[in-house]
Amino acid sequence: MSSTETLVKDLVSKYGKSRNSLMPVLQGIVQEERYLSEEAMIFIAKELDLSAADVYGTASFYTFLDTVPRGKNIIRVCKTISCHMTGKDLIIETLEDILKVKVGQTTHDKNFTLLTANCLGWCHKGPVMLINDEVYPELTPSRTTEIVEEYMKNATH
């Protein structure tokens, strides 16, 4: 049994086989593997007796349930209007510069994925980005660089 299969089985035994368990199972997989692989979605469909298209349909509805491989750290920059007005473009440019990737891409060492997100609810303190589950408000280019370098340092140690 592959590690993904074991993980799905564990999650299903924790949350149950009803359709309601689909969300927590999907979230559990993303937490462990950072995205939902084809293999994972097929195992989930089998375990919960759903069609694979149904599982994929649900996953694709949610921005935070990725269906393509992601880096170890996922950076999401808010792209909605308040953050746009306070300079989110400059933040994205800075991130693209440091990470050497464009929005939507993952760094070569699989350490970072750079994404944009819809409103993160921090309109009063934009521009804002989310790294994994951590929020970083009131960003400036230099502050952004500092934060990301911190993550880079942690990755090498």
Binding site: A52, A53, G57, F61
Partner: peptide, 28 residues
């Protein structure tokens, strides 16, 4: 009870598609 088609994505990206948008000949 086949479920070959499902609603994929949301908003203006929403479409009716298959598992991982595979061609119809490759799904159930």
């Amino acid at each position: 009870a086949v479920g070959a088609l499902a609603v994929i994505n949301k908003g203006d990206h929403q479409r009716i598609s298959t598992f991982l948008n595979k061609p119809l000949s490759e799904v159930v």
